[in-house]
């Protein structure tokens, strides 16, 4: 078995005292694994991702890339961790696509040639080379989403956390994203309501409900369990739902 890159033991997160968003959560993710994080609205998916990045405080033992998630280790952890936020507008803040993608490599002190190479590679992987010199505020929602993903790829992280990556994407871009995710060798933790995307990109699923883990296991097993999904206010992925025949004529 490959080494563990994310480990949580009895993790709890609070926004208000006595009202835990997550309570006594324990799981481990191995290197190279692709894990889907699913659950109804308010089940704590984004909170968990935020806690793993050290953006939200937590109780319990949490380790990322062998380092305990605490203030002193955050710079080192964040070098190895890429986080695609739910709202693209919160992630893009520089004038052009190029500047935003180059932000992390420049911050890590890479040479101009290396920055150029990493930006070009990130643009190529996301299929948005044509957006290179465009201004962020003039992009469509879907284009912004792809740029957000490129900003993370340019960091060449070992672990990628994604919060609703397919939101605002058109079918073509969504398909490109799925293909990219399938080709990515990095460890991935993808929080999404797009269960079809999870099914196509993740071999394992963690289902959150009632502040804790309701199920953790094989993606296909969990995502075909209609009763389990319904009990957590979810539905079967569309590909498993009854197909309505097209009207003729």
């Amino acid at each position: 078995m490959s080494k563990i890159v994310i480990e949580c033991q009895d993790i709890s997160c609070y926004y208000e005292k006595a009202k835990p968003v997550l309570s006594n959560l324990s799981f481990a993710i191995h290197e190279g694994e692709s894990v889907g994080l699913i659950g109804a609205n308010g089940s704590g998916k984004s909170t968990l991702l935020g806690a793993l990045c050290g953006l939200i405080s937590h109780e319990g033992v949490m380790q990322v890339a062998g380092l305990s998630v605490e203030k002193v280790n955050l710079p080192e952890i964040r070098k190895k961790l890429g986080y695609v936020m739910q709202d693209s507008d919160n992630q893009l803040f520089l004038p052009t696509v190029y500047d935003d993608i180059a932000f992390a490599p420049r911050n890590y002190g890479l040479s101009a040639e290396d920055v150029e190479r990493m930006v070009t590679e990130a643009l190529r992987r996301t299929g948005i080379e044509h957006l290179k010199d465009r201004q962020n505020y003039k992009l469509s929602g879907g284009e912004k989403r792809m740029v957000c993903i490129a900003t993370i790829l340019a960091m060449q992280p070992e672990i990628i956390l994604m919060d609703e990556p397919s939101i605002t994407l058109d079918p073509y871009n969504r398909r490109t994203l799925i293909q990219n995710l399938q080709a990515m060798p990095e460890t991935k933790l993808i929080a999404s309501h797009d269960l079809d995307l999870i099914l196509e990109t993740c071999e394992r699923v963690i289902l959150l409900d009632e502040h804790g883990i309701k199920a953790d296991g094989d993606a296909e097993v969990i995502l075909t369990d209609e009763a389990l999904l319904k009990s957590c206010r979810l539905e079967l992925p569309y590909c498993y739902q009854k197909v309505v025949p097209l009207k003729k004529g």
Partner: peptide, 8 residues
């Protein structure tokens, strides 16, 4: 937070 996550 986004800036922090990218090395700021």
């Amino acid at each position: 937070q986004s800036m922090q996550m990218r090395g700021f």
